[in-house]
Design a protein around this nucleic acid. Structure first.
Lengths: 253, 253
DNA sequence: TAATGTGAACTCTTTCACAGCA
DNA sequence: TGCTGTGAAAGAGTTCACATTA
């Protein structure tokens, strides 16, 4: 999962819960697929299955948006598509810049889902002069010297950072200074931003590490016979340094 | 944020909270940076700042691992690096396959952070025969016909799906059948997997939509004068269809 | 009758505030 | 003295179960 919200930490008076907001795109995708198949209505049960959540959660989520369903029938697909799109702000056009056109940046520029939902790649920016002018996904790469001007000319408020970690904070600072207020960060760094700027991060390495944690646990359980305590869980949990694996070269003081 | 856990939904007896697990990689990264600068100890306050969380949360997180700090002093950096690595299962080697070597797959293959922490790209797999044999990031791409054999020969338990959405479920099914039990999914689809298989998803489009939601809200607040009700929030929240924007062509029944 | 919409219960997560210890 | 470790309280998110209504 990506996380890293900085905006509005405390009281969200009257708003939609963050967890619900995070699921709206999921519902929207499932609804769009139904819409393309000209399905007119859908029940919470069916839609929930398509989105990979349970139906109680879906109904609760929708209840924050309003009463858009019909008891005994379900939800009107087209109407819901519109309501969710509007709630997410996708009925308007969002120009986006991608900074850092390496392998990842190029992949993002070529990503179709980008353009499909209100997002438009307004510019690709890279620090390498050799890249300047080269088209990627049909869009010429511009040099980062012009970053501020590009942001302002295009009215960009969302920036995507796909640079190496070392460059990310500097790029972020320049984006924010130029007026960007939402950042999607692919660089493996914690960005610091002023209040009012949202940062979300996507971090491959973190996702893999979380998977590894669960993977390891599965292996531990297999080893244990039946309902017993897994070997790895028998470790002392509280007191004086009790490592149960091999120790590293460096010991604690 | 990526989500999509399927494994162990209910009682997690004795385990580390999921929210804590998700932050351990963050702490580990910050600690690794300190370690490289040969910093011997760090306080919860300093480490929390480096990881972008607050110190109470960090101390609570560490308390689930055990008592690894020293009161009045802080935490031993090297020792913590080791403990967190072990907890995450990074002291062992995890062979990973990447399926779908398009722009994104290539970017992932080239991603340095991959190799640095216990993960090893065991194979790159693509369905395009023209790709077979072509080296990407120094690793020759193999054809997907051999997927099952590759998984088994390398003892792979973690698979990364970077194929188009249409191919993702089929690839997933084959990976699972071949023995993969953790999947990181970059395709914009909900994957269904049997119990015991973990799926995490990374979805660019969803992240952008979440940012757009907050971005839209900021714009609405600017418009409102001072502490007043934002224009967009004045909408009726409950009853008979009350859209406040332009209506789409299709109306609800 | 078949589905939504929602209080209420429950679980998970965060934050507070301070006892306890080096 | 200065920091960790942690109960307790507060807050957020999920699930239950059923009244409600087209």
């Amino acid at each position: 999962m990506a996380t890293g919200r900085t905006h509005r930490p405390a009281t969200r008076s009257r708003g939609i819960p963050e967890a619900t907001v995070a699921r709206l795109p999921l519902y929207l995708r499932a609804l769009t697929a139904l819409s393309e198949r000209s399905v007119p209505t859908v029940s919470s049960e069916e839609l929930a299955a398509a989105a990979g959540v349970n139906s109680a959660k879906l109904r609760k989520d929708f209840s924050y948006l309003g009463s858009y369903g019909t008891r005994g029938v379900g939800y009107d697909v087209e109407y819901l598509v519109y309501q969710i799109s509007r709630e997410l702000g996708l009925t308007q056009d969002w120009p986006v810049v991608i900074v850092g056109i390496g392998n990842l940046g190029a992949a993002l520029a070529n990503y179709g889902g980008f353009a499909s939902r209100g997002f438009r790649v307004a510019a690709l920016i890279d620090a390498d002069p050799a890249m300047a002018g080269k088209p990627v996904a049909g869009i010429p790469v511009q040099h980062s010297d012009d970053l501020e001007k590009i942001i302002q000319d295009n009215g960009v408020s969302i920036g995507v950072i796909a640079t190496p970690a070392g460059a990310a904070q500097a790029v972020c600072d320049r984006l924010v200074a130029a007026g960007v207020t939402s950042i999607l960060n692919f660089a493996p760094t914690v960005l610091s931003v002023p209040d009012g700027v949202d940062v979300r991060k996507v971090d491959l390495s973190i996702e893999l590490q979380i998977l590894a944690f669960h993977e390891q646990r599965k292996a531990g359980e297999e080893a244990a016979s039946d309902g017993g305590v897994p070997a790895a869980a028998a470790r002392s949990r509280s007191a004086d340094q009790g490592p149960d694996g091999d120790m590293p070269a460096v010991m604690p003081a």
